[in-house]
Design a protein around this nucleic acid. Structure first.
Lengths: 206, 206
DNA sequence: CCAGAATGCTACACCTGTGTAGTAAATGGA
DNA sequence: TCCATTTACTACACAGGTGTAGCATTCTGG
């Protein structure tokens, strides 16, 4: 009686590369959302996807390239969502209207795709270098857009302001409140945040 | 000829426990500042301090307790510096004066002890749980103080405002600009930040 | 001056992750 | 149907971190 009994791992369903790649990116994103960037490793991704490590190495050349691919994919989603939410066609130049439209739109945006946004908003500091650099770069792009938006919307008033500093401030606020909304949606509702922004801005305008 | 030639590591200077503990905390802080929280391990701390791991285990029961002790020490420094920088005795209730005093004080504060503040401001997300909880708790305390400060300083005007949201916002701004100052002191000077805060606030006041 | 306590070091067993070579199973076209 | 290709798995060697047992050295007080 040959002891062939050594249980062999059941074969994972065979899928073509393209699909496998997508599946691995999903697995990585799931891990990031559940365990943070610390939890991401080739091994963890393989386990999460129900395959073995060589399968992952077959699809990507390592953790760096895999995360880069993930960022490529999420970047489209995130920036697309974001630029859709920002009232960029706002030539009306009414600051109050801009804020009234942007705040609920952004609120809806993060809650509509919490996994993507948690990965971005909760990312900082010790993430793998590839990820860090990528997100930094995107932040800069967004900050530039905000800076322009501020300049345009505030028009003449803007001359008093340090637009770069203001843009940094706005982005910091979006960042922080985005995180709060994700962490505690019941406490930080769109209405509440809109009201706060409105009342601050209303008092500020002439 | 006995082959006693197997080089034995030269003994590190012998120090009493109390001093050794301080030295290990310093080593940990150095590593955090240089390599981020990712780089912190018992092994790395031992190397940085020029001793072997068992020495570290003799002083602390593991990485968690060591980092807790580090936080205990840094907490005093940081909160002491912070509450000294915030104009808490500001019964004069002049918002502009409060900001004019607070911004340069905070700016000086982070630059006076960059290691401590980088460890706090650049901490987020995936730090060991002990550290994360501790810093979160402190943030809440500080936010509470700011909330009160806002209420007091703005007086009657405060009734229009959502003090909690405003305090969150202010703390987010302090956080973010603190990081910017540390990253690029030449670009974000005390004067520039003061001017920006002053001009925003001046326009906002009646 | 010489125990014995205090302090530090070596060495080991264990864990988790990386990356790869070799092998086994599934699949699709001749 | 059957074989070549594609896809997946096993197994190994290596790297770095943890925690501990046991030995070596230094220092101090009697």
């Amino acid at each position: 009686m040959p002891e062939q009994t050594r249980k062999r791992r059941p074969y994972a369903p065979r899928v073509p590369m393209a699909e496998r790649r997508e599946q691995l990116l999903d697995a990585a994103l799931t891990i990031i959302d559940r365990d943070g960037y610390d939890g991401v490793s080739i091994d963890a991704i393989a386990r999460e996807a129900g395959v073995t490590r060589p399968v992952v190495y077959g699809a990507y050349d390592g953790l760096g390239p895999l995360l880069t691919a993930l960022l490529d994919r999420q970047q489209d989603r995130a920036l697309g969502q974001l630029f859709a939410a920002l009232p960029l066609g706002a030539d009306d130049a009414d600051p109050l209207a801009v804020v009234e439209r942007a705040v609920p739109a952004l609120h809806a945006m993060v809650l509509a795709d919490p996994v993507t946004w948690r990965a971005i908003l909760a990312s900082p500091a010790d993430v793998p270098d590839v990820v860090r650099e990528r997100i930094e770069g995107d932040r800069e792009r967004v900050r530039g857009v905000i800076e322009q938006l501020v300049t345009v919307v505030l028009g003449a008033r803007a001359e008093q302001l340090d637009a770069e500093v203001v843009a940094h401030g706005i982005l910091a606020l979006l960042d922080h409140f985005g995180g709060l909304v994700l962490a505690d949606p019941g406490r930080f509702t769109a209405e509440r945040l809109s009201a706060a922004a409105r009342s601050l801005l209303a008092a500020w305008l002439p």
